[in-house]
């Protein structure tokens, strides 16, 4: 994906007389200024703790090299949070709205033409969009909420998977220049954990097929289809049990943490450990590592840890 982005940038650069590369240079310099102690952009994974969602993201994305590393001027960005359920933010079944809003803001500041947010919800989508707080937060931040509730939006694709060979994916993902995956870390009764790979079930239409045909394998398979350009895992509030919907606030621990990575498997591994589970016990993480979609060996990647 990066290569594609680079080629795009190059093309635009030729036309616009090197404007894009100039902007890129600025971004790098700006990011360096934000966190002078480290060399931003060189990390595979950044973990942040101890702050409010927006601030943690500010620090984290700066360490990742700034949003301009991922979003160029005029690009179409899709941000995919978890908006599965008709419950409020305190229940942590959906991604934190403040975090989503902050990501939207960063994308727009980086020059995105538009930032669209959607999910194929489990509960009624209108209620879930509204009561999660995400609809309002996104609109206030200047983003667009798009519907994911109608099958006609979903176009057939082939998947390089072991079990999952084809499915249908929301056209927004297929047409996006940049895809940012923003799951919430939580317990999950079907998939053991719901993190970044599991969150991708919200961009496909027929989830029942996955459930019927080895769910854990399908989750791993689909992660190979279109790796998000960036995974931002919300672990501010974490549902420790009764996931993915939860029953009450008693299910929730306030962990005030955030994980950002370009490697979806590494991101899930780190989040899984943060949750207190062993990544090897989570079948889809184990399988995805085996399929070399990413790595679960965190010792092999460059991690930066920030405490706010």
């Amino acid at each position: 994906m990066k290569r594609k982005d680079f080629l795009k940038s190059l093309g635009m650069g030729v036309i616009a007389g090197g404007l894009v590369s100039l902007k890129g240079g600025e971004a790098l310099m700006a990011a360096t200024a934000n966190s002078p102690a480290v060399s931003p952009g060189s990390f595979d994974l950044v973990a942040v703790k101890g702050g409010e969602p927006g601030i943690m993201f500010d620090k984290g994305i700066a360490a990742m090299g700034g949003m301009k590393r991922f979003v160029s001027k005029g690009q179409k960005v899709v941000v995919k949070p978890n908006i599965g359920w008709d419950v409020g933010p305190e229940r942590a079944a959906n991604t934190n709205p403040d975090l989503v809003a902050r990501i939207v803001k960063h994308c727009l500041e980086a020059g995105a033409k538009e930032v669209v947010v959607f999910d194929n919800t489990c509960d009624n989508w209108i209620k879930a969009y509204a009561n999660s707080g995400i609809e309002k937060a996104v609109k206030d931040a200047g983003g667009k909420m798009a519907p994911g509730n109608t099958e006609s939006y979903y176009k057939p694709v082939t998947v390089p998977g072991r079990v999952l060979k084809s499915t249908t994916v929301h056209e927004l993902i297929l047409n996006a220049d940049v895809f940012i995956n923003v799951p919430v870390l939580k317990h999950h009764s079907s998939a053991d954990m719901s993190i970044a790979m599991k969150n991708l079930m919200g961009i496909v239409w027929d989830r029942r097929w996955w459930h019927r045909n080895n769910l854990q394998q399908c989750i791993a398979d689909f992660a190979a289809f279109r790796k998000p350009d960036l995974n931002v895992i919300d672990a501010y509030r974490v549902m420790m049990k009764n996931g993915p919907r939860g029953v009450s606030e008693a299910d929730v621990n306030i962990m005030k943490s955030l994980i950002i990575s370009t490697d979806i498997v590494a991101a899930d591994t780190a989040a899984c450990k943060l949750f207190g589970n062993e990544p090897d016990d989570i079948a889809h993480i184990r399988i995805a590592d085996e399929m070399k979609i990413g790595t679960k060996d965190l010792s092999k990647i460059n991690i930066h840890r920030i405490t706010v």
Partner: peptide, 12 residues
């Protein structure tokens, strides 16, 4: 169902 409106703060 069992539950309450109390979340625990557990920052690592």
């Amino acid at each position: 169902p069992k539950g309450s409106d109390k979340s625990k703060e557990e920052v690592p």
